[in-house]
């Protein structure tokens, strides 16, 4: 920055380094522990840097426990949730940003949607559980990808609505009106003008819903059994009745975190831009 003294620069980096260390320490510790064998685990005091790195935890997890199956569950559920929330939320957001309803209904609808996020998820768990165990058309939602994806998607719908409204408001009204005059219907305008222009926001929103579903624990715990179980539940599953498989648990943590981390890094550009854009005008 212009006019910055050396001291200021050093101080700035020192603060950033300190904060980063505090934030990253647990992550480091998780990676560190995941590479330790049974022997090193028992060492007192604990070794700060792993002395004899081993892959036995990962081997046990991936080969013996077939942990990757849970990963597939997580991916499918998150994709279902994000696709659902983004497609429905985008339509809703577009309608609410373009059409003025009487009696300030736009605002009331948006606020009502927000209340979905206000009550604790546990409130819905028992009715959902009962409903999901009922057979509808020969199909039970309990312990299915679709079942959990539906719930996750619905939970994140308000987020999508509020974010996408911000993005749509940024699109010049003239441009859409030009398309209307040029011969398009509203839906065609949404598809050909609004969505391409809001694409970075759409991507950011999709990723946020994906991550939220990926990390969600409570509903995933109750609404799945063994078939559609997602990663967070499987991580917690390393706590057995009589002992805690610390090494496995740490390895499971690493495996669960890495994909989201990569996703976030890849989409960083969209995320920051998207969040900033949506935030200012939303």
């Amino acid at each position: 920055m212009v006019g910055e003294t050396t001291f200021e620069r050093v101080a700035k980096y020192a603060v950033v380094a300190a904060v980063s260390m505090i934030v990253l320490l647990p992550v480091y510790w998780m990676v560190n522990m995941s590479l330790k064998g049974k022997g090193e685990f028992a060492a007192r005091p604990p070794t700060l840097v792993v002395q004899q790195p081993t892959t036995e935890n990962y081997y046990d997890l991936l080969v013996t426990q077939r942990f990757y199956l849970k990963g597939i569950n997580s991916i499918v559920v998150a994709v279902i949730a994000a696709t659902l929330a983004v497609s429905i939320g985008t339509l809703g957001a577009y309608a609410l940003s373009r059409f003025r309803l009487p009696r300030n209904l736009n605002y009331h609808l948006l606020f009502t949607m927000l209340t979905i996020r206000m009550f604790p998820p546990i409130v819905t768990v028992i009715p959902l559980f009962a409903f999901y165990n009922r057979e509808i058309l020969g199909f039970k939602l309990f312990d299915s990808w679709l079942g959990l994806g539906l719930v996750h998607g619905f939970m994140e719908l308000p987020l999508v609505l509020w974010m996408m409204i911000g993005f749509f408001r940024d699109i010049p009204r003239d441009m859409e009106e030009a398309a209307l005059v040029d011969g398009d219907s509203r839906l065609a305008v949404l598809r050909k003008i609004a969505i391409p222009l809001a694409a970075p926001g759409l991507a950011a929103t999709f990723i946020l819903v994906f991550i939220a579903s990926w990390n969600e624990f409570l509903l995933a715990l109750i609404l799945t059994g063994s078939k559609a179980q997602t990663l967070p539940i499987a991580v917690a599953g390393q706590i057995a009745q009589y002992d805690v498989k610390w090494g496995n648990m740490m390895a499971a943590g690493v495996i669960t975190t890495v994909p989201v981390l990569i996703l976030a890094l890849l989409s960083q550009r969209y995320l920051t831009r998207g969040l900033a854009l949506g935030g200012v005008t939303g």
Partner: peptide, 29 residues
Amino acid sequence: PPRARDIAMVFQSYALYSHLTVYENLAYP
């Protein structure tokens, strides 16, 4: 609706489709 009125409009802001090329803009209608 506007699309059924057989009109063309030039806007003050020009309202060009910013994600499309000039060719695509002209071809749009």
